[in-house]
Design a protein around this nucleic acid. Sequence first.
DNA 1: GATGAATGAGATTTCATTCAT
DNA 2: AATGAATGAAATCTCATTCAT
Lengths: 220, 220, 220, 220
Amino acid sequence: MTGGQEANNTKPRRRTQQERTAQAERALLDAAATLFARRGVERTSLADVGVHAGYSRGLVNHHFGSKAALVERLARDIQEEFVREIISRIDESDDDAVEIIAGMVGDYLNGLVEHEETARAFFVMWSAAIPREAALRPVMAPDDARFRLGVEGVLRNGQKQGSVDPALDPAATALTIVGLLRGVVAQYLVTPATYDLAAAIESSRRFVRRGLSPERQGRE
Amino acid sequence: MTGGQEANNTKPRRRTQQERTAQAERALLDAAATLFARRGVERTSLADVGVHAGYSRGLVNHHFGSKAALVERLARDIQEEFVREIISRIDESDDDAVEIIAGMVGDYLNGLVEHEETARAFFVMWSAAIPREAALRPVMAPDDARFRLGVEGVLRNGQKQGSVDPALDPAATALTIVGLLRGVVAQYLVTPATYDLAAAIESSRRFVRRGLSPERQGRE
Amino acid sequence: MTGGQEANNTKPRRRTQQERTAQAERALLDAAATLFARRGVERTSLADVGVHAGYSRGLVNHHFGSKAALVERLARDIQEEFVREIISRIDESDDDAVEIIAGMVGDYLNGLVEHEETARAFFVMWSAAIPREAALRPVMAPDDARFRLGVEGVLRNGQKQGSVDPALDPAATALTIVGLLRGVVAQYLVTPATYDLAAAIESSRRFVRRGLSPERQGRE
Amino acid sequence: MTGGQEANNTKPRRRTQQERTAQAERALLDAAATLFARRGVERTSLADVGVHAGYSRGLVNHHFGSKAALVERLARDIQEEFVREIISRIDESDDDAVEIIAGMVGDYLNGLVEHEETARAFFVMWSAAIPREAALRPVMAPDDARFRLGVEGVLRNGQKQGSVDPALDPAATALTIVGLLRGVVAQYLVTPATYDLAAAIESSRRFVRRGLSPERQGRE
DNA sequence: GATGAATGAGATTTCATTCAT
DNA sequence: AATGAATGAAATCTCATTCAT
């Protein structure tokens, strides 16, 4: 499989060690995500993670040092991947601000189905930050803020360009939009059976479009 | 069941026993809520709950039988209290549907500050239902559904009365509204510091009013 | 067995719980001493202690909370018992200071055989305080000091009464005497086979009597 | 054995390999001594030793095969060095037996300060032989015996020459002297703060001189 | 010779649960 | 009703050792 590459390498030894580490860590993180999604963080043991990844009971500690470090690493990895994707889409888009946000709402909710396990794992870790003395708070809170700030930036642009109502408080509005997304997804994760995702996306977009639009409405 | 005895009051000792039980259970449930809010369900031991309630290490098992039973009981208690309050407000209201929902949004978010500990405990238990094999799922999911159904009912009424856009899917819209509430609260619970609650309420209400309104808008 | 006593007790319930605790703790401490003497502190697991005491694996933690607490408690218990015995003998004695010390040397070394297991357990814990960052240091060091101070007091009395050379530094001399005892015992514990205890006692007493005596000697 | 090769120096690479091995082992043994003195044998991991020596986690096993082998090797090295020094001093001395012993007492105790870390490491390993089933017993016990035999030899010489009381049991007396040294040092290692070493040396020498001397004393 | 990835045994500790009082 | 002694399962973490590179 990688034989040809090895033949070309002058230091195949070093390369392979690095590869082994990277491969093992990837397998461990994937296994952790699967098991967190299935049973939650607390009910997943490090031994389970190691064995589910196809290795031994002790490998998680060997690579990550502690359970907390594993959780933190996984949370950051998912966040980064997710934020990178969202931001790249926003940057590439030629739409006005409202359509960028509406598009993001659709992407976010559609992505839920495609990456349900990852989403579930992320929400499991995110909600583990709710207790006041939660160890994960300092890890998850900054990410929340970053997501909100990204949305806020789009809103401010939209206000400059006129597509977003200038009367809106951008920070509070970003918070509402992120809240809407998080809450809709969380409900899906808790009660997937009774859920019409397409309709939920439609409805969420309507709320966002109307909530942001500067146009007059009879009632306000 | 015990009504006859109570009426006669011939055995005051029996009465006292009942009161003692009720009082102890109340104290235990309050202690559990406090500790769940502080450290989460898994990191709270039954001994902690008993001692924090002013009793002994073993009393939780004596009264509730198991940790799962305690959690379930607390979750149901908070839910019932909460749903009762919301529904009574909706029933008493003379407003049209949109204002009922907008009012509920305000009450819900304002109540957060007043009963933060209870809210935190509830969200801790609710989010414990996110893992696919979570034991709490069967407890929390029906409540989610009930809450959505309540909102859905208001929306259908509003559609009959004309205050809510008849083109809306009431189920999906209810889901969006409940999602918005849950998500906004969850963010508050994770990152309270960076949070302007009044602005969040204002923004949430705007989204709800505009999202529900039947009036034409330029963009759609 | 204790039935007759229970019949007389007005509060047999409370009494019995206390007895159970006391009995279990005694059994656990005895088992710990036996196993520490046999394998050392680090190689003795708490599970071993519980099972060897006739209870379960988890009981040590139930009663003492941690391994460190068990070790500390056992060390203090042995120390107290030992110091109490030594001091009571000194107080009861009518001998002059030199003979009190010489007698103590004999008692100490003879006691070694009679309570070898306890002595071995104590020396195991005492020597665990030698590493610079040893957790047991703060526990063992004060006891060493107390023992030396007791001897020092006897020496000062002897100097007042004339039986101990007034030129001696009482603190340094106490240190030497305690060192002699500790070192002779430690050798016995490390190499019991090649050991003539009676001769060692004889020799140690000679050193002490001559070392303390004020009489002139040709060489000095 | 390898002298021929070294002389020819035709294979400098071989020479370098040997040097590298010797250098690495020296570094590993030094690191082990430092860490044993700091935290004890059981709480020092082989990885710590390797890294503290400036190498990798796995090097101790590579060179010594097992932790037990490392400990044994270090114990023997320190012993040999120490015994060699003591014996060479005794051999070189022209003093009579009593002064040889008294000089050794001074050297031993003074050396403590100069080589405190080595001394601490040695006492850590020596006291690890106190538990009855200690793995280190067979390593440390013979050394104790050798030290005592050395002292015993000096005493027998002294008895022949008349400087040591012929009534003394040489073996028991050697045991007492070695015990005194070990015990005084051990106390220093456990409670260095409250310690006047100069006074302790003075006192120890007095005990030895008087204990060995054949001169008459009023009291005996 | 040297590194460090991987294993798996074992230790401490926590804790839900059972049961005697 | 209430206490808390006792059990034993399970989890995290450490670490000596083996082995591939």
